[in-house]
């Protein structure tokens, strides 16, 4: 069943259009940077962007920092929100369940397909950005400067890049779990996707509000950009670990709720 879902995801035109669109923005940024040579001043703008003018190999990280706050969550919410509700609206959900595909199996397969999509999207974004970065912005051979100012070796950089990709995927899983839960509640994939995005918008807003300080450690978007800390020297683990734990809790709670709802639900679509 997992294979079936993966095949469905990969054969869907929407998957590739979305990934293409995710790549468009970082590519545009790279082109603009290369043409104008006008980087943001250090400390402003998306993370790493000030550093890429001198070192194109850092551009994958800048690209992730560019798509992470808005574009990637939108794509994940759309895919995950569509997972069950989309099948329900198309009428195929009932035919899957009477095939029979166990409801838990179905939910797990959908989740794996969403994870695969997130991983695919992040990897394609990183790979495209690497190519664009080295081509357009130049490859500074040798040591790379960390966010803290010390230099990092190429192996250190690749290891930390892999870690940060993992961290981004986990952050997106939190979004996916919320959207998947809403997807089992409604038969409208639009409703589920927008519901999940609503949660994220609310979370981003509360994050900027001093009066909401008490809530801030628990907001789903609170630690999203903490992967930047992986490029400090030494690595600043505190927020990364908190981010992992927090996302783990969101994923567990919303997946549990999805399972409880979907396995006991009347399928009337």
């Amino acid at each position: 069943m997992i294979v079936v879902e993966l095949v469905k995801m990969l054969r869907r035109p929407r998957t590739w259009v979305t990934i293409g669109m995710l790549n468009a923005l970082p590519t545009l940024v790279a082109v603009l940077l290369a043409l104008t040579d006008l980087g943001p001043r250090p400390g402003t703008g998306p993370a790493f962007l000030s550093a890429v003018l001198t070192d194109g190999t850092l551009f994958p990280l800048a690209a992730l920092a560019i798509v992470l706050p808005f574009l990637l969550p939108i794509a994940v919410a759309v895919f995950s929100g569509d997972a069950i509700a989309g099948e329900a609206a198309a009428g195929t959900l009932r035919y899957m369940v009477i095939r029979p595909v166990g409801r838990t199996t179905l939910l797990v397969a959908k989740l794996v397909s969403v994870i695969a999509f997130v991983l695919l999207a992040v990897l394609v974004v990183a790979a495209t950005a690497y190519v664009m970065g080295t081509l357009l912005l130049g490859d500074q051979t040798g040591a790379t400067t960390s966010v803290s100012g010390t230099s990092l070796s190429a192996t250190q950089i690749s290891g930390r890049t892999a870690l940060s990709i993992g961290y981004v995927v986990l952050s997106m899983l939190g979004v996916a779990a919320i959207a998947l839960f809403l997807s089992t509640v409604t038969d409208s994939s639009l409703g589920a996707a927008l519901g999940a995005l609503g949660v994220l918008v609310a979370s981003s807003l509360l994050f900027t509000l001093d009066a909401a300080a008490a809530l801030q450690p628990y907001l789903p978007t609170r630690y999203w950009l903490s992967f930047v800390d992986l490029f400090r020297d030494p690595i600043l683990w505190r927020d990364v670990v908190r981010g992992v734990v927090l996302q783990g809790v969101y994923v567990a709670v919303f997946l549990g709720a999805s399972w409880a709802n979907f396995t006991t639900k009347d399928i009337t679509s």
Binding site: M1, R11, T92, Y95, P100, V101
Partner: peptide, 28 residues
């Protein structure tokens, strides 16, 4: 058991054969 419940449903962007193949691969 083979069933047809409240009208047929299939994935529009795939061919009839591909749909049957997917549905057959689902479940046991």
């Amino acid at each position: 058991v083979g069933s047809l419940v409240e009208g047929p449903a299939a994935y529009g962007h795939l061919s009839g054969r591909a749909n049957l193949s997917l549905f057959d691969a689902m479940g046991v």
